[in-house]
Simulated assay, not measured.
Amino acid sequence: MSDSRTAPYAALVLRLVLGALFLAHAGLKLFVFTPAGTAGFFGSLGLPGWLAYVTIAWELVGGLALILGIWPRLVAIALIPVLVGAIVTVHGPAGFFFTNPKGGWEFLGLWIAGLFALALIGDGPMALKPTTARQAR
């Protein structure tokens, strides 16, 4: 049984943390690896280089949308393929533990679970554009 008084704040915490993680990963690709370097890395995996730019944009827009609360439940579901792609191409073959060389997929699995939980639990308070209409109290 959930506590109806605090569950919405759990959604808010999930939204903010998950959004910040996506912004941090986009920032890593922009400022540390650089977009061109990220495109080169994608190419080394056999992926088209342009997909790196799409991924960076997806992480930036998705992270901001989660933090601001713009259709958060839908955005959470839409961000899962980015993480599944990272598991399939890089982290899955490295094993489960994130401390393995090239990092495992445990962190990404937890991240996916958090996004799925947010999609199930709801938008939380302070959402600028909630996914569903708020009910009158």
Rank of each mutant, 00 (worst) to 15 (best):
100 N>C: 09
80 I>D: 01
4 S>E: 12
65 A>L: 08
75 V>F: 06
77 I>F: 09
16 L>S: 02
21 L>F: 12
38 T>H: 05
17 V>K: 08
88 V>M: 06
88 V>R: 02
114 G>W: 10
44 S>P: 00
56 I>T: 05
127 A>W: 14
94 A>T: 14
81 P>M: 14
47 L>V: 08
131 T>C: 08
24 A>F: 10
70 I>V: 15
72 P>Q: 05
127 A>E: 10
32 V>G: 00
56 I>V: 10
122 G>E: 03
5 R>V: 07
18 L>Y: 10
45 L>R: 08
62 G>L: 14
116 F>R: 13
112 I>Y: 01
80 I>P: 02
49 G>D: 11
135 Q>N: 10
102 K>M: 15
40 G>E: 06
31 F>E: 05
84 V>R: 00
79 L>C: 11
97 F>S: 13
99 T>F: 12
41 F>M: 06
33 F>E: 12
111 W>R: 01
23 L>H: 05
109 G>I: 15
69 G>F: 07
115 L>N: 01
52 A>N: 13
118 L>D: 03
123 D>F: 09
2 S>R: 15
89 T>A: 15
75 V>D: 01
128 L>P: 02
126 M>K: 14
30 L>E: 04
129 K>V: 13
39 A>F: 05
113 A>I: 15
95 G>R: 03
20 A>G: 09
30 L>V: 06
137 R>Y: 05
102 K>N: 15
131 T>R: 08
11 A>I: 01
98 F>C: 02
53 Y>W: 14
2 S>M: 10
6 T>H: 15
12 L>Y: 06
111 W>M: 14
1 M>H: 14
43 G>M: 05
67 I>T: 11
42 F>K: 01
135 Q>M: 13
18 L>F: 05
11 A>Q: 02
101 P>H: 08
37 G>H: 03
41 F>P: 00
42 F>Q: 00
7 A>V: 13
117 A>E: 03
107 F>D: 07
130 P>G: 02
124 G>H: 09
127 A>P: 09
53 Y>K: 07
58 W>N: 04
27 G>R: 02
132 T>M: 11
39 A>Q: 05
32 V>S: 10
54 V>M: 07
20 A>P: 02
50 W>R: 00
6 T>C: 06
63 G>D: 00
83 L>T: 04
52 A>F: 11
50 W>T: 00
116 F>K: 13
6 T>E: 12
66 L>V: 09
124 G>D: 07
20 A>I: 11
6 T>N: 12
51 L>N: 13
42 F>L: 02
127 A>Y: 13
77 I>E: 00
34 T>L: 10
49 G>F: 03
91 H>R: 15
134 R>C: 02
136 A>G: 04
131 T>Y: 09
87 I>M: 14
58 W>K: 03
133 A>N: 04
115 L>E: 02
